[in-house]
C-alpha cells in the first residue's frame, strides 16, 4: 500500500512537471507568431526585403527582438511602434497615412478613376459617332451591298442544313 502511494505521488509529480513544461512551451511565441509580425516589416538595411524572409544577421536579431517583445506581452501594434521609433517609418510594409505618404494611397485610385472616366467618355463619343454615321447613311438611302447580302443568305442556308 505504501509503495503504491509512493508510485502515485511520483506519477503526480511527474505529470505536474510535464504539464508545467507544456504550459511554458505554449506561452513561448512560435516562429509563426514572430513571422506574422515580421512580414509586416521590412529590413531597414537591405532594401525591399521583408523581415520574415531576410537572411542577414541584422534581420535575425530583429526577429529575435520581436520574439522577446512578444514573450514580454507586447501587442503587434506596440512592436510596430517600437520599430518605427527605432528604425524609422520606412520599416513598415504599409506606409503610415501621413504627409507625402498619402500620395501612395490617393494616386493609384485617382489615376484609375480618371482613366475610367476618359474611357467612358471616349466610348460614348465613339458610339454617338457610329450612330450618327449609320443614321446619315440610312438617310442617304444606302443599303448594305448585294454581295454581302448574298453571303449572309448562303451562310444562313448552310447553318439550316447542318441542323
Amino acid at each position: 500500500m505504501k509503495k503504491t502511494l509512493q508510485i502515485l505521488t511520483l506519477a503526480l509529480l511527474l505529470a505536474g512537471m510535464i504539464s508545467s513544461v507544456a504550459f511554458a512551451q505554449d506561452d513561448a511565441p512560435t516562429d509563426d507568431d514572430v513571422n506574422a509580425i515580421a512580414k509586416q516589416l521590412y529590413c531597414p538595411v537591405c532594401e525591399n526585403t521583408p523581415l520574415d524572409v531576410c537572411p542577414t544577421e541584422a534581420c535575425r536579431q530583429w526577429r529575435e527582438l520581436i520574439r522577446t517583445q512578444l514573450s514580454q506581452g507586447m501587442t503587434e501594434q506596440q512592436i510596430k511602434d517600437y520599430f518605427v521609433a527605432n528604425y524609422g517609418a520606412r520599416v513598415l510594409a504599409e506606409p503610415p497615412r501621413s504627409g507625402l505618404n498619402w500620395l501612395v494611397y490617393i494616386l493609384p485610385p485617382a489615376i484609375i478613376l480618371l482613366g475610367a472616366f476618359f474611357l467612358f467618355r471616349s466610348f460614348r463619343e465613339w458610339t454617338k459617332a457610329s450612330a450618327t454615321a449609320s443614321a446619315a447613311s440610312a438617310e442617304r438611302g444606302e443599303t448594305s451591298s448585294p454581295a454581302k447580302d448574298d453571303y449572309v443568305a448562303r451562310l444562313e442556308e448552310e447553318l439550316k442544313k447542318r441542323k
Binding site: P44, A85, N86, Y87, G88, A89, R90
Partner: peptide, 10 residues
C-alpha cells in the same frame, strides 16, 4: 547611443 529612427544617419 542609438540613432533613433535613423534620423542622424539620414
Amino acid at each position: 547611443g542609438p540613432d533613433m529612427g535613423t534620423k542622424i544617419s539620414q
